[in-house]
Each structure stands twice: as C-alpha cells, then as structure tokens.
Design a protein around this nucleic acid. Structure first.
Length: 795
DNA sequence: CTGGGATGCCTTTTT
DNA sequence: GGCATCCCAG
C-alpha cells in the first residue's frame, strides 16, 4: 500500500508526508513536482480524507486531467470525486451553485477576452471617446489588472494614484469605463475570466457562512504552479485555508512566466511569512535532463537577481553540449531545424513525438510549418487561433449562449444580423441606447420595444420580432432537448446551415467541417456523460464546460507521431527528448516590449529557462540574422541571453564568428543602456501604479538604476582553447569589428559568400548599423547589414 | 443596409 | 503579411 513512498527521494517523501500544517514545495524543473502532488493526494486519501474534501487547483485543464489520471492509477475510481481543476473551472462550478447570492443566475455566460474587448469597445463608443486614445485592448488590460488585484470600480475611482496614472496616460475616463463595463456585465448576466475570481472572492468575503461551508468541505487544499497565482487567486486560497491552515502550494519561482496577466511572484516568495510556521521543502534533483542541460540552465538563471536559491542538479548522463545554430534568415532557420531533426532521428531512432520546436511568439510558427512540410515531416501545432475562436464556431455558440441566457449582450450583438436579416448598425445602436438609458439588457428592449421607447419603423420592428421569436423558439427547448439535439436544431433553424452550405468554395467548406465537428463534439459530450449514468445532458451543461476550454484541450489524433510546435508559454510543464528553442534574437526573445524594466527582462530570462529545461537529451538554440516582420525584412542580432549561458555548455557554430558576434551584441547592449536615461528604462515605479495593499508594489525593491545595477559582468571560469577571445567584453575594448569590411561604397563590386557577385547600389547608416543595398547578379537585390554580411570587395 | 475594396494598424506570451 | 476598420457605390 505504501510502497510508492519508496519511489520517492528523501525530500520528495518529506513533502508528501508532512500534512499537519501549511507547506511550500519549491520544485526545480524536472524534479518530480507532479509526482509529489499525486502521491501526496494518494497519501491523503489513504489517511482517511474523502476525495471530495480535497481541493487541488491547477492552471490548465490539461494539468488537472493528467494529474487525475495518475491519481486514478494509484487509488482507482475515487479519483473521480476529487475537486481537481483549474482555478477558473472550480470557481465557476462554485459560482453556479451560489449565484443567487451575488445577483447572477446559475446560467451566467462566461465572456472570453474577445467578448470583453468588444464590450469595452462599444462602451468607449457610447461615451463618445476616441478609440485611438482609449484603445480597447489597453483599457481591457487596465481593468483586468485592477480585478486581479481585487480593486473594484468604487475603489478604482477613488484611488488617487490610479487616477493620476490614467491621467498621465491620457485616459482619465478609464474609471468610468470600468464602472460601466462592470454594470454591463452584470446586466448581461455575464462574467469575464477575471470575474470568476473576483466574484468568488466577493462571495466568500460577503457571505461568511458560505465561505465556512467550503472551507470546511475542503479540508486540504493544494495549489500547483503557485508562482503563477495572482493576488485574487492567492486571496481566495487564503479565505479557504486561513482557519485550518491545511494547504500545500507547489511551484518554482524560476519558472514564473505569467506576470503579464497578473501573476505575482511575491505570492510564492512571501508564502512562509504569510502562513506562520509553514514548512519549506526544496526538490533539487532533476530527473529529466542531462547534466549539461541542467548546468546550462542554472548558469542562465543565475543572472536573475530575484529568486529563492536552490541547487538543481542531475545525476543523469553528462550529455552533449547545447548546439547553437545561426541562420541567415528565418527561412534558413526553419531548414536548419528540419535538417537537424532528420539527422538526429536517423542517428538515434527517435520518434517524431520526441521533438519540439519552441518559440516566443505564435507568428513564428509559419516558417517552421513550411520547412517541415517541404520535407514531409509530420507536425502538430498548438496555439494560434483556437477552435472556439473561429468565426463560424463563435457564431453558432452565440446562438447557444442566447438560448441559455438571452441577456448575453455580446452574443446578441453577434448574431442579431447573422445570417443577414436586414437589421443594421443603426437599429442595433438604437436598441443599445434604449437599453443603456433604462439600465436593462438588449434582450429586454426587444421584448418590449414600446415600453423602452424604441424609435423604429414598422419593417424594422417586424424584423426584430422575427429574431426574438427565433431565439425564443430555442429558449423553450433548453430544458427539454439534450445538448446535441438542440445544437443541431439551432444550426439548422438559425439559418446558419443554409448560409454556409450555399456555396462550396474552400473557405465555406472548412466552415462546414468546423461546424460539423462542433456538433459531433456535442454528440460525444452527451454520449460520454450518458454512459456515466447522467441523464439529460442539457445545452447549459455543454456551454458551461466549453467556455473554459482552450484549444490545448482538444487532443486530436493523439496517436500519430508528430513533431510539436508551440510557444514556450504553452510548453511549460511538458518535456521532450529533443528541444529546439528558436528565434533567439534581440527584440524577439527577449521581446522588445520587455525591455522597459528589469523585472520584465528577468521574466523573459525565466521563460528561456523554462524552454531549455523542457529538454531531456538534446537542446538546440538558434537565431536568424534577418527575418520578415510585418511583411518587411528586418535585421536582427543574437539574443543577449545567449551570452548568459556558460559557454562551456554550448557548441558554437563557426566558433570565432559566433564569439565575435556575441561580443558585439554585449558591447552594443551596454552602450545602449548607458545612453538611455536610466529612469525611463529601469525605474518601474515611474511607469506603473501600485495597488495599495497588494504586495505587487515595487516598494521594498529598489528600482534598478544605472548606478546600482547588479553585476552585469559575466564570470566565465575559463575560456575554451579554441576560442580566441570570448569573455567579458568591456566598453574600453573595441570589438573585433576592425576585421569587418565595413568600408564599402556605392558603385563597388563585392563577392558575397552566399549570394555571389553583386553591385553596391547604396550605403546608408553609420558604424555598426550601416546597411548596403546590393544588386546581385544571380540572387537579385538584397539589403545587407554590414556588420554581419560576409563578403569581400572585388572591384 | 450591404458588400467590396483600400487603408492603417499591428503582436508578446493565455485561463 | 494579415486583420479590422473605414469609405464609397449600389
């Protein structure tokens, strides 16, 4: 029974066995975090906890599902009754039960981020503000941030610091938009993602007896990936565990990569202060990667200043050094990676599943898709446009949403005139005006247009009533038909079917397929649940589940061998035998937008750390010297992160050149920093407001100013023999630029290593950044950044 | 009110 | 290069 305890090392076992009070498990990458969590839950069950008294919170549905499966292997069927899921899904489940207390129905809609963005956009419009200044995305981020810090409209409006920030940002009306947005969501019986946390918090805060009920039910609370919790999530965990203190949080501060959506690394850093007497366990043995990979990752993360110290080590084989590839262009980068996959696979008999290509932004995927397709290598791609974000799917789902909750404003607007039924923007705006004036939902106006003074002509009135009757015919079926039957009926009777089957052009064909897939999915949804003994699976059930799914959750054709393409963010928690981290270029990784503060830069570095530590056996890094951005060719220099890794663990291409480039990158970086006023670049408090009592304010941490910057010098114990000059580049030492043929003029003829003979048409810029336009006799016209171009002048 | 075509803006990362 | 928005003609 307890034999599994022997499969754990000492610190893992200690973490599993300690359940008398709060504990914090700091789990290095690959250190068996999931194993500890699953065994701990198994152990708790063995100790007599009932499954429904254990709450385990994760960040992704996938993590929850996997953990549940692993627990089921240990303890069997009772795993089904665990409260295990994402924060959002568990809380929405609670909120649907308790919705009356907070003024929602149990069928409330969950707005996804495009819904909330569109609502904000229409509010901005109604308030006659300029949406160039009041960019919906920006306002949305402000509101989301406020919610994540549990700052509600009243508090927001009366917070002088926030107001001042908005004034400075030229968006003083943000607080009014926030208030309206808040009201409109309530009017629509809708919650956005953040509201699922906000209203759970409010529910527990304002109804102590409800809070007590859940706190007593959940006798033990576990939280995975605690470094990614935001203030709201953290506060709810506290509400549930303050009394009994039986809480275990697991995470790795070195892998905190979600601060952009409110994750607060302080939650984990300060856990032991908040829960007095909390035990700290550190898991430091990495069971995933070779020693080389672990050491390389350690040498990288050391460059960060804020962290809980730990010594991650591996006892696996030493392994090969991390290969670094440089490519001329993004296209060539794709080819190099594809070639390397073929080579490695034939040499060591890997399956395609053993390979992953990880990138910073989704936009990078296309190049690799093309390269892989060209060589007929199978791949699967995660992210990008999710199934549920597709237009045709959103349209159908909007009808579903209306049937379940006709007050859903975003769904209403989306399908009021789809398929086209002659109700245009003018009419819609009239409806919105009437609704806002009377503080009712749009649907309510449709129910009694006269009572709300809707000023429209007879024809329009008839069209509106036609729409109302259509939706009502769906509404009455909601409690009757099962989800699949009703779904099929809606697709047919809404007119979407006719619309989409009208023509068979490729675009429509794929829409047809997607809608069929949705309906088939509903069929499976109902069938599975009915097999489990549930009767009458309603559309409400389907919707409440589907609104929290992401595309990562539909695992399709899982058995076929495929290379994985995904962003580093979505790779967290996964592992692959061979990993390619691509696009290691300045302004891409680290992202140009992260250069505003050292905090963000450190987060990018942690992201790189996450990427490298996904690899078990081989890890490769690559960058391209030029890449297409916004349809234009842009030149790029190698990422500063490359020089953060101890060079011992790298295998560089054409070593001298590589070293020189890194050198140049380093000295340029240093120069740029010195040129810029340090305040705008590093003083975070200058650019971001703090949120009162939350622990996110930078007070306590000194802003990172030029004078007191932590060590920027890289300490490299020794320089490999074959590298002439690597090592700290200092400002006083000019880089190896002297050897570069930068003295080229228009009219000269050059011979380029790859493009051959060409005529220099013009030269622009000075020094390192000078660029030449060259017309090659066989390769056409190219722009060359002189510091990288490899050519000699021949005439 | 609708549809097509030109224009201008981008892009981190996601539950 | 791709999407959303705007503008104009029917």
């Amino acid at each position: 029974m307890t034999n599994y305890l022997e499969e754990l090392n000492e610190s893992q076992r200690n973490a599993v066995l300690y359940n008398e009070g709060p504990s914090l498990v700091i789990a290095g990458a690959g250190s068996g975090k999931t194993r500890v969590l699953t065994y701990k839950i198994a152990y708790l069950l063995e100790q007599g906890y009932t499954p429904w008294s254990i709450l385990a919170l994760t960040f992704t549905n996938k993590a929850a599902r996997e953990m549940k499966e692993r627990i089921a292997r240990q303890v069997g069927d009772q795993a089904r009754y665990l409260w295990m899921g994402t924060f959002h899904s568990i809380f929405s489940r609670i909120l649907r039960c308790e919705s009356q207390s907070i003024g929602f129905t149990s069928n409330f809609t969950i707005y996804d981020s495009s819904d909330s963005k569109s609502l904000i956009k229409s509010i901005v419009k109604e308030m006659q503000l300029d949406d160039k200044t009041y960019k919906p995305g920006l306002i949305q981020a402000r509101i989301s941030n406020a919610k994540n810090h549990l700052v509600f409209p009243d508090a927001y409006a009366s917070n002088a610091e926030l107001y001042q920030y908005d004034v400075n940002a030229k968006v003083p009306a943000t607080r009014d938009i926030y208030r309206r947005y808040w009201e409109r969501c309530r009017q629509s019986d809708a919650m956005d993602f953040d509201d699922l946390l906000v209203y759970t918090y409010l529910l527990f805060r304002d109804y102590p007896e409800i809070c007590r009920k859940y706190a007593e039910q959940f006798r033990y609370v576990l939280v995975d990936e605690y470094q990614d919790t935001n203030f709201a999530q953290h506060s709810i965990v506290l509400q549930l565990t303050r009394e009994h203190q039986r809480v275990c949080v697991v995470g790795d501060d070195a892998q905190s990569i979600y601060s952009f959506r409110g994750a607060n690394i302080d939650n984990i850093l300060k856990f032991t202060q908040l829960y007095k007497g909390a035990r700290l366990f550190k898991l430091e043995q990495n069971y995933r990667s070779t020693q080389t990979i672990v050491c390389a990752a350690n040498s990288l993360i050391e460059k960060n200043s804020e962290q809980i110290r730990k010594e991650v080590f591996s006892e696996k084989a030493k392994g090969e050094p991390i290969g670094v590839f440089n490519a001329y262009s993004d296209v060539e980068e794709g080819e190099i990676v594809a070639n390397q996959i073929v080579k490695l696979r034939s040499r060591e008999h890997y399956s395609y599943n053993d390979f992953a290509i990880l990138y910073r932004t989704n936009a990078q995927s296309r190049i690799f898709e093309e390269a892989l397709r060209k060589r007929s290598l199978p791949y699967k791609i995660y992210g990008g446009l999710s199934f549920y974000q597709r237009k045709e799917i959103k349209d159908v789902i909007s009808y579903f949403r209306l049937a379940v909750n006709p007050n859903d404003e975003e769904a209403f607007k989306r399908v009021l005139n789809y398929p086209a039924r002659g109700i245009g923007d003018t009419t819609l705006n009239k409806v919105i005006d009437a609704a806002t004036q009377h503080h009712v939902s749009l649907w309510r106006v449709l129910e009694e247009p006269l009572a709300y003074g809707l000023n429209i002509n007879k024809g329009t009135h008839a069209k509106l009533q036609g729409f109302r009757e259509l939706v009502e015919s769906f509404i009455v079926e909601v409690p009757e038909k099962n989800a699949y039957e009703l779904g099929a009926m809606i697709v047919r009777q809404s007119g979407i079917m006719t619309e989409i089957y009208q023509s068979n052009d490729p675009e429509n064909l794929s829409r047809q397929e997607n809608i069929e897939e949705l309906i088939n999915g509903m069929h499976d949804f109902c069938a599975t649940r009915e097999e489990e003994g549930n009767e009458n699976i309603l559309l409400t059930d389907f919707l409440s589940e589907v609104s929290l799914l992401t595309d990562q959750d539909n695992e399709k054709e899982g058995d076929a061998e495929k290379i994985t393409l995904m962003t580093i963010h979505s790779a967290k928690g996964l592992e692959f035998k061979n990993v390619f981290v691509v696009g290691l270029e300045e302004n891409l990784f680290p992202s140009a937008l992260s250069l505003n503060s050292y905090k963000e830069l450190e987060e990018e570095r942690r992201l790189f750390y996450v990427a490298i530590t996904r690899a078990e056996e081989h890890c490769y890094l690559s960058f391209a010297k030029s890449r297409f951005k916004y349809g234009k060719m842009e030149f790029s220099s190698p990422s500063r992160f490359l020089k953060d890794i101890d060079i011992h663990f790298l295998k560089l291409p054409q070593e001298e050149q590589m070293a020189r480039r890194i050198d140049e990158g380093a000295s340029r970086f240093r120069r740029e920093q010195n040129e810029r006023p340090s305040r705008s670049l590093f003083d975070e408090s200058a650019s971001q407001p703090s949120y009162g009592r939350s622990s996110s304010s930078p007070s306590g941490q000194k802003p990172f100013s030029a004078g007191e910057r932590p060590k920027a010098e890289i300490i490299r114990p020794s320089v490999p023999r074959n590298l002439t000059k690597v090592g700290p580049a200092t400002a006083s030492k000019p880089s190896a630029a002297g050897t570069l043929p930068v003295n080229v003029q228009a009219g000269q003829v050059i011979e380029h290593e790859r493009f051959g003979i060409g005529d220099v048409i013009k030269v622009e810029g000075t020094g390192e950044n000078s660029k030449a336009t060259v017309r090659f006799r066989n390769a056409g016209e190219k722009q060359l950044l002189l510091k990288f171009a490899r050519f000699k002048v021949v005439g």
